[in-house]
Amino acid sequence: MSAPLLSVRGVRVAFGGVKAADGVDLDVNAGEFLAIIGPNGSGKTTFINLATGYVKPQAGTIRLEGRDITSARPRDVTKLGIARAFQIPQLFTEHTVLENLMLAVAANQGFWRWQSPLGSPAVREAAMDLLTTVGLADMVGASSNALNEGARKLTDIALALALKPRLLLLDEPTAGVSTDEKFPLMDRLAAVLRERGVTAVFVEHDMDLVRRYADRVVVWNQGRVVADGAPDAVLTDPAVLRDVVGVL
């Protein structure tokens, strides 16, 4: 077996008395779709924050392809090929949807220019492609703070895709997206990710989506990984059903 893409060892962090990560060991392998499930407050988002340098662990190490990124900042991690989409969409609310995307595309190709426009034809086209991918092609001109929650989530995901990451961390990508849009969205997303060979981790509460798209499932509870394996095995484990799936 080849070395894992992301490797987390013994990571701990506590907020006040709350242990949001309590000795987390986890490997993410190249090419897989890994689903993270677990009750609210179990530390799923914190795990993504730790992996991307937004929260610094009080103990433990995080490696990307063997390289220590434990104390890297979000922008360093991003440059190394990890992108994330947020549970609460993080958009540029003073810009339109298209401008949001163009900023993300430009960030990835020639951002440090000060006399040529943000919206060069190439950047504009790439931004439009991404919006089409997530199904927002008819929203380009909308101001991003006028969108509904679902469209905000999609814009947020498109921003992450624009960075052409090797590893994409999606925090509840379908929360807020309407029920009949969930599967089509994940279909399109999965297709794009497979085509580009992107490794993906997604936090998800919908077990049908997990069964359909995950290669592997990790179960979180109280800051720890309590189960890890193939969806069929994990989602039929009585302990998991009782402690985690039952309370979702």
Partner: peptide, 9 residues
């Protein structure tokens, strides 16, 4: 959204 800018690298 400064945080998102950082997350764009």
């Amino acid at each position: 959204n400064e945080i998102r800018l950082e997350y764009l690298g």
